[in-house]
Amino acid sequence: MMLSRHAESLFWLGRYLERAEYSTRMLDVTYHSLLESAAWESERAWRDLLQVLRSESGFDKTGSPATSEHVNRFVMIDRANSDSVSACIERARENARSVRELIPTELWQSLNSFYLALNQRDLAVDLAEQPYDLYEMVKQRCQTVSGVLSDTMARDDGWRFVTIGRHLERAQVMCRLLAIRYQNLGDVSFHQWLAALKSASAAEAFRKAYRGSQDPAEVIEFLLLSPVFPRSVFFSLRHAEAELDILGAQFGRVTRPQRLLGRIRAGLEFAEIEELLHDDLRLHLVEVESDIRWVAESVALEYFRNSHEFAPFVPTGPAPVGTKGR
């Protein structure tokens, strides 16, 4: 049990942290993979990245060409981009500050010192001169924060909302990444699939699981359906669902976010990869992504808005058949 406002802050704390980290990972991978690519591939790659981050229309408003320099600045620091990495860290910190008394001091300190460190640097100069250092710093700080988070935070409802936020965010971006890569399947070289793997920090895990495979279908299977890799869509959804189940169990009923998410997860869990590839996979991924967005919306309705001002109905005695379990 916790204040709705606090639950919402923690949910967004999780989402912003995740967003800052994967945005940086993608910049890093794109920047470095382009060093070995033909010039014509460059603009396409940056455009793809903007699409994955859902920042393309925002970027186009700046009127700048999609070059490494401009995209980097936009995604990393541009004030006009409310989802820039520095804005995400600032908002993660603001959310942490508003739940300061609920989170471990060490968590707050690691996030606050991250924020201060970022503000002390001249990010524009860093990006122009040595983007690698900046990417590394952001990634490491994000990992420090999530390490402190999972090592110091009690597994209470607060933890659950952070975790749900992070995993929904992670699953969404992975769906978008796969959809955009798949859309250009014909002319995507395996080099680019490798970049997709790298931006999920999945290249090594993939190699281990698939022994030197160069088959895009297997990359998709891995990033979409792997039950063991922590950044796959299926893995993220299952973890978010597990936390939603614990939250819901306290009410003694299956909540709407549980039902919505359970359906998406089951659709992936019991699908055959051939079946998925045979159908319009891109369209399917777009649908999954938008369904996940609905889950986030229903979490907000169930737990944050609290529009029904009074305690939710809790059945006394055993729950009626068919409302529990799967």
Partner: peptide, 29 residues
């Protein structure tokens, strides 16, 4: 709030109904 282990609330987290003060939580009031 942290030292005491209690909730830190803002005005918008509280409601008064029938002269009873409650806070809005993930479990209702």
């Amino acid at each position: 709030a942290r030292q005491m282990g209690v909730e830190l609330v803002e005005g918008r987290d509280l409601v008064v109904d029938d002269h009873i003060v409650s806070m809005r939580t993930t479990h209702g009031l």
